[in-house]
């Protein structure tokens, strides 16, 4: 269970405090998929960074399995929570295998050498992310889709009950988006993980997620996709002039 109580996210800029989202509260049961949606600049990444513990909350608390995130040690947190960020400027000499191996760092010894059981986990994940062909090639040769699958693979290798992904489908075509969503769904079904991800693919999120958090003007609306649709909060996502929610198909459509 991921419990967020009265959470305000934001950052300090010099002496000024910039509030991004205020007073978010929700309980996310284990085994759920939470999609965070909202317009550009609505605070999706800030919230994810706060949930990952890289950004301190302005106020409020986050509990993972009833443990306060702020008080969990680095190493313990690495066993609970895996992340996929939008960063892409990695050293091109790294191979896919190198990056996957790092996912085992919280589990293995001080030199990070792979034990047989680590290798077993890696081989399993390589199959799951369908990277058998390229895994020993330098990542400079990877396509966007391959790199994204690899980064999700790295988080899977870490074997954490929670996964946080920041815009995992950005820059991908429909086929590769479906692949990424497939990986997420599989992780939840097979390994009983809890996944939180931010996305601009509202239509896909409505199909895939068990829960949606809609961020709009410092406020958050949490619920199952059905709840948000019936409350009408989903319509807040975009100004109605260009895009509108069609309740019949349960999808957003262009208005012209």
């Amino acid at each position: 269970m991921l419990t967020v109580a009265n959470l305000s996210t934001g950052y300090t800029k010099g002496k000024e405090t910039v509030l991004v989202s205020a007073d978010l509260s929700f309980d996310l049961p284990s085994g759920s998929i939470l999609g965070i949606v909202g317009r550009n600049g609505s605070g999706k990444s800030t919230l994810l960074k706060t949930l990952a513990g890289t950004l301190a909350p302005l106020s409020g608390t986050i509990h993972l399995e009833s443990r306060n995130l702020q008080q969990i040690k680095h190493h313990t947190k690495a066993l609970l929570l895996g992340i996929v960020t939008t960063e892409r400027n990695f050293s091109g000499l790294l191979t896919g295998w190198d990056i996957l191996s790092m996912g085992r760092y919280p589990h293995n010894g001080w030199l990070g050498s792979l034990r047989p059981e680590d290798k077993h986990v890696l081989h399993e994940v390589v199959q799951r992310i369908q990277m058998e062909e390229k895994i020993f090639h330098p990542i400079a040769t990877y396509s966007d889709g391959q790199l994204q699958r690899l980064l999700i693979g790295r988080a899977l290798v870490q074997q954490t009950p929670y996964l946080l992904l920041d815009e995992p489908t950005i820059h991908l075509d429909l086929h590769h988006k479906a692949q990424v969503f497939g990986l997420i769904k599989q992780a939840v079904q097979d390994a009983k993980k809890t996944v939180v991800f931010s996305t601009h693919e509202v239509n896909h999120a409505l199909q895939l997620c068990t829960h949606i958090l809609l961020l709009h003007k410092e406020e958050g609306y949490f619920g199952s996709p059905q709840e948000l649709i019936s409350q009408g909060s989903i319509g807040k996502l975009f100004p109605n002039t260009l895009v509108a929610f069609d309740p019949k198909t349960q999808q957003f459509k262009l208005c012209y």
Binding site: G53, L79, L81, E87, N89, F90, Y105
Partner: peptide, 18 residues
């Protein structure tokens, strides 16, 4: 050594790996 390797993915990833 582990920290140096993981820093190649940036500080956020390094931190997330403990």
């Amino acid at each position: 050594i582990k920290a140096l390797n993981s820093l190649l993915l940036g500080e956020n990833y390094a931190q997330s790996m403990g």
